[in-house]
Design a protein around this nucleic acid. Structure first.
Lengths: 256, 256
DNA sequence: CGTTGTGAACGGATTCACAGCC
DNA sequence: GGCTGTGAATCCGTTCACAACG
């Protein structure tokens, strides 16, 4: 089973660039904040500052969605919130399951950012029978045995894996077999999935290692460049305007 | 190879591209697994498969580090583990503090991937006085009041923020003022930091939103049906735009 | 006016394909 | 023969700069 579909070209012909998609949630968050303050319109410059990107990039990003701004004025906040939400698919309800209810799984279950944006935690699943029935974030934990039926009964297409590394692939296989087609993986493992299934990974220790690399470089530099400016740099509290590297992502779709 | 006198491009980032740095931890993890199985050598093809990248990219990445392979044979696993560890700065000890010991902070404190890679949790810090003294992952939680002294006494340069969004900037400011120069931010907020401070962000809800985008596209494709829904509803408010919206910041790379 | 929207220039990252070496 | 290392080609994303337009 699960064999060769032709490898999908990274970006669909008429699609929005991946880099842009990855920033839409950022814009959405900034816009939501403005919306809550009842700000009616915003310029690309202001919004870009709030989102921590530069304005040319933001305008280019929005241009892929359509012409939603007004020259000389800016963008209508409410309208843009709607357009981006729709583009991201957040106007519909996405039931998700979280598998692995340790500290991390519990943190995810309690995370407000999920529930507040179209994501609904349909179930919490754990392999430990002792957990079964215990409520976490108000939702009773269910045993792994029920994974398949939970997914089918709730029409779940997005799964979150927060298990130990050793269990991740097995859980992944079961999720996929049961119909899940998008996976957010927190376990430090490379998951193999059939074509057509998206995987995004979040690896806590990888991020730290990247920081360590830069930290080490700073330390080394300081030794060679003793004649720099005095003391601390200015109090320039610029927003961190530097782009994260090629984001932490490895888009998806594994080889089979 | 450019041993020539052609002078290098402006930004003196002596060598390794960001994209490569971001993948080194991935390679390291795959290599460590091989090492534990006592595999002596590995080809670029095999290692690439284990790390989930393609082999040309892997070879190009390694070429930035030096010529550590043997043509016709492959790479020596142990040697490569050492070289990458050194490059990433993992041969030294990095004391880190985690601020905000909720579920997420506890998950981080318990996360084995930290300790096993040169990172040492020097302290857990929380604002709740009731937490003080309580051990989490074997380490007693300390109160925020002691943040500055902890950082200075331990020579901490890397801080992890796992607080609610509202507290993140304030915590960040204190960390930076006390000497921290690299921050891993889990709070859904854009952090402002002075030049010279690196910030990397991990935003749980952003990843889910990106998945939702792709998921939606799959669904639409399969139906190929009706295009976008037309009319823009009234004052569309995606969901219960409750408290903290999700938000993301764009981390930093190098000092200016 | 001021600000958007976008072609064009640029630069970095990925991929190709093969020379070089074991 | 097999595999690494790498210039060259290509792809993708960012930035520039300005025309279009309310």
């Amino acid at each position: 089973m699960a064999t060769g579909r032709t490898h999908r070209p990274a970006t669909r012909s008429r699609g929005i660039p991946e880099a842009t998609v990855a920033r839409l949630p950022l814009y959405l968050r900034a816009l939501t904040a403005l919306s809550e303050r009842s700000v009616p319109t915003v310029s690309s410059e202001e919004l870009a500052a709030a989102a921590g990107v530069n304005s040319a990039k933001l305008r280019k990003d929005f241009s892929y969605l359509g012409s939603y701004g007004t020259r000389g004025v800016g963008y209508d906040v409410e309208y843009l919130v709607y357009q981006i939400s729709r583009e991201l698919g957040l106007t519909q309800d996405w039931p998700v399951v979280i598998v692995g209810i340790g500290n991390l799984g519990a943190a995810l279950a309690n995370y407000g950012g999920f529930a507040s944006r179209g994501f609904r935690v349909a179930a919490l699943i754990d392999a430990d029978p002792a957990m079964a029935g215990k409520p976490v974030a108000g939702i009773p934990v269910q045993h792994t045995d029920e994974l398949e039926s939970i997914i089918q009964d709730n029409g779940v297409s997005i799964g979150v894996i927060a298990t130990p590394a050793g269990a991740a692939q097995q859980v992944c296989d079961r999720l996929v077999a049961a119909g899940v087609t998008s996976i957010l993986n927190f376990a430090p493992t490379v998951l193999s999935v059939p074509d057509g299934v998206d995987v995004r990974k979040v690896d806590l220790s990888i991020e730290l290692q990247i920081l360590a690399f830069h930290e080490q470089r700073k330390a080394g530099e300081e030794a060679t460049a003793t004649a720099e400016s005095p003391a601390v740099p200015t109090a320039t509290r610029t927003e961190s305007a530097t782009d994260q590297g090629p984001d932490g992502d490895v888009p998806a779709v594994m080889p089979a």
